[in-house]
Design a protein around this nucleic acid. Structure first.
Length: 804
RNA sequence: GCCCGGGUGGCGAAAUUGGUAUACGCAGCAGACUUAAGAUCUGCCGUCCUCAACAGACAUGCCGGUUCGAGUCCGGCCCCGGGCACCA
């Protein structure tokens, strides 16, 4: 008599044994096996593993287990992205040190993670807030600094005037401070930036070769924002100065009726003496600077600006004198900070021209005719008008001609900005720089790394706008590595995205103290062959990681150009009410209680079964019953099975088995875990109908293809069958093509495209043979009532359609 | 505003990429077992017409088109989710 399915006992038993036997610890090389690096984005130690983590980790593990059974030497590591603001804020709130809070959370989460039963290699655990790890952040920074790719610059930061502190972008919600709801302003502070823009073109180009979701690539492309255009100079009248503008529509230059400068544009200061309305210009610039993020968002529709009276420029194409305006719809950070305004062919210029009653002149029209009144800008292609010699020429051809005529230069611009990594916060990697009165900015020598983050008591931000580290005299004071004099340490810490931009390399060799990872180990594992994580990291994390990899490749530290060859996203799990899970809504699904009620195998499987992986969905409380019952039935049938090897397995059963082996393998390969599980359910339904015919091969194959989804129950049954080695090291069964091909097929019979009957015929019958059979069917004869089909469409093995 | 996804039974979802729409599961209903409940097993389960069966008609957000045949392709709309947002 069968015992009942005791998942609690089975799961804890095998989790202990796997750990003890180090079953999933990856050796750097195994004879006869190819290495496969499988990675999930490491979690932030927020303190609690919620069902969303499970959704990220459990199905991802199914893929890793499948790859392992396919004969690959799989590395599936795990770690914690342990620095960052939430830890700091939580620590401030609870009055405990961020380190204590973080390490405590990691302990809890590691335990919870183990309860999923994932095949992680725990021996390679990475915790980014430990000096052994962040030492290499600092090393990387020095390497970037050496090449001029890390540089210091005054840059605008989000400043909360009430909290008197700098805020990270994540702390600014719709232009307001997250904590006190004060409108955030921009403040200029000296900060460190990484020159990711040097890599813009390569980051764009190399997207082509990646096996990533198309929408993710599109988002990265948009973020990089390449645009081809030209730089054209507008001479300032009665001066030898010129205003350079960037445009993608040089063909519209004949219609440029004024130019617009960004408020920060240097020309205003240079020619200040000549400005007639100095006061109003100064006032506008001042206003623009104090404008909050909030104002900019709300003012999106109506344009503001001021004319710079007393200075004009020449339109180099028409040689007409045109005015200069200043408006904050032009931004200093893109292009040249100045534009030529063509109201007839640009929406924003059009709105601006209407607001200030400026002339609107066409330079392109659909068919060469001029419109009398222009009620909206014409943005399409067309032919040139008002353009002298170029009239009637298609505008896309005229583009280059205009640039030539005025002596402009072709130019490519990117929206991508350099990466600002300075954080005026405590809980992060110290930037390894000292400031010496004599020597200036001096990098900390490599041999002095790590610059250890001191365990200070007071880590709350204050009104100085500097990191709390500045309050530690001991940390702040340093000797200059160059001259030996007294110097001051940089007190800002690094953005945590630095930590996560290279951690995947560290897993190859996590305990190395001499180099960031051994060259041979890097070669044996990287790049990551399958990377799994949330789509919310589409731009920042994934782009930064690609940038670091390219830099390391340039410097010869790694031999690959892209960190993640293949990428898949999981969806988001919503609460039972269809809303985002949150404590305040009270709709958070707790995985721990589900595990104790149904077992880890059931929770894993339900997550994989509920929808397609990238789609996510609401948690349906009773839905888990389906997979739980399935596992109970698996237990019932296989824990009591007595194999009768003399019994001949019916062809139909063999066929079902092999079809399922194929289906499950094919589906896992494309991350369709839901349909793979459905196929397993169908197979079980069939096996149950004829239990006596199940032999050892069928039972073992079934257990093997179920193993990635439900690792514990399958391991238990597998060993009960008498196997000595883990099912997770067993070979994925091969399907037999012969067994799958059926001799007979069901042919669908349609009349005018509507199904009227079905008939079982030989697989290889041709059209005329099939037609003869079909025309003799009672239902078809009745439906045709004597009429002859005008046309017959025959799809071999599938259907026949009679058109009357 | 622009760029991506998506809209299929009471619910979560399938559909070999133009070829049997609704697989698999949840919930529900009926029956078996049970003193009973639960668990388990068996059957039914898109809508409409019909006493019922057979059969039929209508159904994949809406309107139109292409095709022997459309959830799938094309054109035009309407909702929902995500990203970007004055980038010249």
């Amino acid at each position: 008599m069968a015992t009942s399915y005791n998942y609690k006992k089975i799961e804890s038993k095998w989790q202990k044994i796997w750990k003890k036997e180090k079953l999933f610890e990856a050796k750097d090389s195994v004879k006869g096996k190819k290495n496969f690096y499988h990675l999930v984005m490491f979690p932030y130690p927020s303190g609690d593993l919620h069902i969303g983590h499970w959704y990220n980790f459990a199905p991802a593990d199914m893929y890793a287990r499948f790859k392992r059974m396919q004969g690959l030497n799989v590395l599936s590591p795990i770690g914690f992205d342990a620095f960052g603001l939430p830890a700091e804020n939580a620590a401030i709130k609870r009055k405990i040190h961020p380190e204590k809070w973080t390490m405590g959370n990691i302990k809890t989460m590691a335990k919870q993670l183990e309860s999923i039963g994932n095949s992680y290699d725990w021996s390679r655990l990475i915790v980014t807030c430990q000096p052994e790890y962040y030492k290499w952040n600092q090393w990387l920074f020095l390497k970037l600094f050496e090449k001029g790719l890390a540089y210091r610059k005054k840059a605008a930061a989000n400043w909360c005037p009430s909290c008197k502190t700098v805020l990270a972008n994540e702390q600014v919600i719709d232009g307001y401070c997250e904590r006190c709801q004060t409108a955030v302003v921009q403040k200029e502070i000296d900060q460190w930036l990484l020159k990711i823009t040097d890599y813009a073109e390569r980051l764009l180009e190399d997207l082509e070769v990646l096996d990533w979701p198309e929408r993710t690539k599109i988002m990265q492309r948009n973020w990089i924002g390449r645009s081809e255009g030209a730089e054209i100079e507008f001479p300032v009248l009665s001066s030898n100065l010129k205003v350079k503008v960037f445009t993608t529509r040089a063909d519209t230059l004949p219609g440029a009726t004024y130019i617009v400068l960004a408020p920060e544009h240097p020309l205003v200061t240079v020619l200040e003496e000549r400005i007639l309305n100095k006061n109003s210009v100064r006032e506008y610039i001042e206003q623009a600077r104090h404008k909050t993020e909030r104002d900019r968002i709300s003012e999106n529709k109506s344009k503001t600006g001021v004319e710079v009276k007393g200075i004009t420029v020449l339109n180099p194409f028409t040689e007409k004198e045109i005015p200069i305006w200043i408006s904050d719809y032009v931004i200093m950070g893109y292009g040249t900070g100045a534009i030529m305004a063509v109201p007839a062919h640009d929406k924003r210029d059009f709105a601006f021209a209407q607001e200030f009653k400026l002339p609107i002149i066409q330079s392109v029209s659909k068919d060469g005719t001029l419109k009398e009144t222009i009620s909206e800008p014409y943005l399409e292609d067309g032919v040139m008008v008002n353009a002298g010699d170029l009239d009637k020429l298609p505008n896309h051809i005229a583009k280059d001609r205009v640039v030539e005529t005025v002596g402009g230069k072709k130019k490519i611009n990117y929206k991508l900005r350099d990466w600002l990594i300075s954080r005026q916060r405590y809980w992060g990697t110290p930037i390894p720089i000292v400031y010496c009165d004599g020597c200036g900015i001096v990098p900390v020598p490599e041999t002095d790394l790590p610059v250890v983050l001191p365990r200070v008591k007071d880590f709350t931000p204050d009104d100085s706008g500097r990191s709390p580290l500045a309050k530690s005299k001991k940390f702040l004071t340093a000797t200059c590595p160059k001259c030996g004099g007294t110097a001051q340490r940089e007190t800002d810490t690094m953005d945590t995205f630095v930590d996560s931009s290279w951690y995947f390399i560290r897993y190859a060799d996590p305990n190395n103290d001499a180099v960031f990872a051994d060259d041979k180990k890097i070669k044996s594992w990287l790049p990551v062959q399958m990377y799994i994580g949330g789509a919310e990291h589409t731009v920042l994390h994934l782009l930064y990681s690609r940038f670091f990899t390219k830099f390391l490749n340039d410097r010869g530290y790694v031999d690959f150009k892209e960190p993640f060859s293949a990428l898949r996203h999981q969806g988001i799990i919503l609460g039972p009410d269809g809303q985002k899970m949150s404590k305040s809504r009270g709709n958070v699904v707790d995985p721990d209680s589900l595990v104790s009620e149904f077992g880890s195998d059931s929770v894993r499987m339900y997550l994989a079964f509920m929808s397609e992986y990238h789609q996510g969905g609401s948690w349906h409380p009773t839905g888990i019953m389906g997979v739980h019952r399935f596992l109970q039935r698996v237990w019932a049938i296989f824990s009591s099975v007595s194999f009768n090897e003399s019994q001949i397995v019916p062809d139909a059963m063999r066929r079902s088995l092999h079809k399922t082996i194929k289906k499950v393998g094919d589906d896992i390969a494309v991350f369709k875990f839901n349909t793979a599980i459905a196929a397993l359910m169908i197979l079980l339904n069939e096996l149950e109908k004829n239990k006596e015919a199940i032999n050892k091969t069928i039972a073992e194959d079934f257990i093997k293809i179920l193993a990635p989804f439900a690792p514990h129950i399958t391991e238990e049954l597998w060993r009960q069958f008498g196997n000595q080695e883990s099912v997770h090291l067993a070979a994925w069964p091969e399907y037999d093509v012969q067994a799958i091909t059926e001799a007979e097929i069901e042919l669908v019979v349609q009349i005018n495209g509507v199904v009227r009957d079905k008939v079982v015929i030989g697989r290889s019958l041709d059209q005329s043979a099939a037609e003869a059979i079909v025309l003799n069917l009672e239902k078809i004869k009745a439906a045709l009532s004597g009429k002859k089909p005008k046309k017959v469409i025959f799809v071999p093995g599938r259907l026949i359609n009679l058109v009357v």
